[in-house]
Amino acid sequence: MASLVDMQNVSHAFGKSRSDLILDKINLSINEHEFVGVVGPSGCGKSALLRIIIGLTKPTDGAVYYRGEKVEDICKGMSMVFQTFALFPWLTVFENIELGLQGKSFSKSEKRARVLKIIEFMGLSGFEEAYPRELSRGMKQRVGLARGLIPDPELILMDEPFSSLDALTATHLREEVLDLWLDPSVAPEAVIMVTHNVEEAVYMADRIVILTSRPGKIAKELEVTLPRPRDLRSNELYKIVDEITGFIA
C-alpha cells in the first residue's frame, strides 16, 4: 500500500512555549484505500491533528508529507468536514456546495453540472435553493459532505462529523458515508475521521489510532478486520470497543 500522508515527528504547542504541548511526536501514515479512525479523550489534540494534516495549522515541530511533498499550505488534495458543518448562512445549498470548486478551472456550466450531480448523489435534490437555516442538522451535514466531496479530494478529513446529530440521524448518515466509501465512483483514496465515539470508529474504520490525553501521543494502533457490513451490536465488535475503551480510560 502506498502511503498518502506521512506525519513525521509532529509536535504541536499552543503559542510558543513547549510546555503547552498538545501533540507530542506523532508519527502516522495514512495509506491509500484506508479508512482511519482517530479516537481519544477530549483534549487529546484530535482536531489539531486534522488541522495540521490539511495544512490549516503549522506544527511547532516536525512535518507532514503528502505524496512525498511537504505540506506548507492548505493542501489541495484534501477536504475537511466539520462537526458544526461550517456552512455560510447567506448562501443556498447549491452555492455552499459550489464553494468546494473554488479555484478549479471549470466553465460555469460544467461547475453547475458537477454541483447538481453531487446534490443528487447526496440526496439533496429538492433543497438546491434552501438556506442552511431551513435545513435539519442531518441535511446540513450532507451539504458539508457534498462540499467536501465535490473537488474530488484524495483524502477526506472528518472532525466529529456525527457528534452534533441526534442518534437516529447519526445512524442514517453513518450508513450514507459507508455507502459512499464503498462506491468507487465517488470514494476518496482515504478517509481520516476523528471521533470520541469508540463504537462509531470500530463500526466504520479499517484502522484505529488511539491518542492519549495532554499531550496527545499515539498510545496504540489497531487494525479492524471485521468484514463489512458490520453489525454494530455484535459481540466481535463489542470486544474491540471494550479493548479500546480500556486503553483510553
Binding site: S136, G138, M139, A167, L168, T169, H172, L173, E175
Partner: peptide, 12 residues
C-alpha cells in the same frame, strides 16, 4: 420528524 431520522429508524 426529519426525513433522516425516519430513515435512521428504519435502519435500526
Amino acid at each position: 420528524a426529519h426525513v433522516g431520522q425516519m430513515i435512521g429508524l428504519l435502519e435500526v
